[in-house]
Amino acid sequence: MSAPVVRVDNVTKRFAGHTAVDGLSLSVPPGTLYGLLGPNGAGKTTTIRMLMDIYEPDSGSIRLFDTDRGGRAHSQRIGYLPEERGLYPRMRVLDVLVFLAEAKGVARRIARVQALEWLDRLGLADWRLRRVSDLSKGMQQKVQFISTILHDPDLIVLDEPFSGLDPVNSQVLRDTVVDARRRGKTILFSTHIMEHAEKLCDQLCIIARGKKLVDGALPAVKQMHGGKHVVVAFDGSQGAAARIFADRRLVARVEDFGGGGQEAELELAPGADAQEILRALIESGARLLRFELVTPSLHKIFVDLVGPDAAKAAAVPNA
């Protein structure tokens, strides 16, 4: 397997009075869409800023593209969308894009061609000579986003990319990210909204209070931390369902037994086989409408891991 694009090794960062990131390690394999998840104040932005050479870690090491040089040295290969976004309001749209690309080390001529192409693609071609301040907020978001990916970076780092985006731009962003991933680019993004992560991520890392709680591929994390869930729906006869569900060797917990007893969600006991429950139900004479193995939502895992208080805080965007 090829070396990870981003490798964070036992990194700690303290600010006056508190530890923002505490012994964090993670690695982002090439070609993945990697989610850095956590409630507000978990240390996501600090971690990303350390990747981007904005902060220096107090201890630990960061490797990008398998080198020990930081984000600034690789700026030509990295597209970074910070959480706090902004453009020069008095500059012309095209000039801003060309300048920001040049600052990353992209040749002026190439930056111009790419900028015009992207402006055209996102429907801003007619605005290229207007001042940034003449644009609507949504258009400014698009310009900001173009500046992140204009130079076709190998690694795209997005800090809370969906916060403050209108639905149209949200979709544009998602499409572009998925397209970049399809072309073999690596994307690292942070979010506190689990629904976004669940839809996009291949790999993820959940952190809270600067420490890692879990990381790995999305299915593996779900399997490890959520346990297996089965949704059962009856079509009339339930057979001996009540007895089978109470068998703690098979079922750890019955989450939901609603709908007049016609539906239930079960959490399997560790090591139990769903097929055994299915066989027992059918043998007991139950008629089944639905028997489905489901994985729990990422949100549920997140709440379980982080604790309800932190999760509640996280449910308020940008609080």
């Binding site: 800023r49 981007m52 904005i54 700026s75 910070p82 902004g86 453009l87 920001l100 600052a103 990353k104």
Partner: peptide, 8 residues
């Protein structure tokens, strides 16, 4: 704008 600039 500072953050993007500082990263490059």
């Amino acid at each position: 704008i500072m953050e993007v600039l500082v990263s490059s």
